[in-house]
């Protein structure tokens, strides 16, 4: 999944670069088309919005775009958006007292390390979780380095009646159900030499997974 994310991001960056180069070079073969397109293209898209692309459910209708490098076509893209999502496959699992821990990914870059995992309880629609605090969440254990990496946290200052509190950069769930509930946790970047880690979580047996760098 994260590989897909990065690919998508790369595509966007490359697309932006390509668009920029196209503008700068002023590709003569396309210039006339572009110029024509700015008029007819916008108006035709506007027509499409009002006919086939009319938003439902009380959604806003788009106003005519004044820019020519819009980030949306003006029509509902929901179907394509849901179609674009691909569910990740687990790379390791463990079970404990009827609950299943599935690990989908440990992906480490300079921007941090993302763990994707989920807990499920096929026989129980609602099992409370013991681990609700950042310090009780899954750890990434590097045995060779003799370190267990814990979630990145931020310290949120006291506010109103709330005390100062330390929060993880994570999904956070307080219950396990029969259905999937994907969770993410952000850790610090792992050293390049760390190629696999044991994901440890409460009483589950460690799940050994490869680290994507």
């Amino acid at each position: 999944m994260n590989r897909q994310d990065r690919a998508l991001a790369a595509v966007r960056r490359l697309a932006a670069l390509t668009a920029g180069v196209t503008v700068v070079l002023g590709l003569s073969a396309c210039a006339g088309d572009d110029a024509a397109g700015e008029t007819s293209g916008n108006s035709s898209e506007g027509s499409a919005d009002e006919t086939s692309g009319e938003p439902s459910d009380g959604a806003s209708s788009p106003t005519p775009a004044s820019e020519d490098d819009d980030d949306a076509p003006g029509t509902d893209q929901s179907a394509a958006l849901f179609e674009a999502y691909s569910a990740p496959e687990p790379v390791g699992t463990a079970t404990w007292e009827g609950q299943t821990l599935e690990v989908f990914e440990v992906d480490s870059t300079a921007a941090g390390t993302r763990l994707a995992f989920q807990l499920s309880s096929p026989e129980n629609d609602h099992a409370d979780m013991d681990a609700r605090n950042w310090s009780e969440l899954p750890q990434l254990v590097d045995s060779a380095g003799e370190l267990a990496y814990q979630p990145l946290t931020v310290t949120q200052p006291a506010y109103g009646n709330e005390d100062e509190q330390r929060l993880c950069l994570c999904t956070g769930q307080e219950a396990v159900g029969s259905g999937p509930r994907m969770q993410h946790i952000l850790y610090e970047p792992l050293p390049d030499g760390v190629t696999s880690v044991d994901v440890t979580y409460g009483d589950f047996e460690p799940v050994t997974v490869s680290v994507e760098h």
Binding site: M1, D5, L8, A9, R12, D71, A72, P73, T75, Q77, A79, A80, L81, E83, A84, Y85, A87, A116, D125, H126, T171, G172, Q173, E174, A175, G177, S178, G179, P180, R181, M182, Q183, H184
Partner: peptide
């Protein structure tokens, strides 16, 4: 496969964070 005509920089699916809920 339809491709959304908008930037998509990441996607994830999640379930309800608490309580007994419809697994769908």
């Amino acid at each position: 496969v339809a491709e959304p005509d908008i930037p998509v920089l990441g996607q994830a699916v999640g379930g309800q964070s608490a309580g007994s809920v419809d697994p769908t």
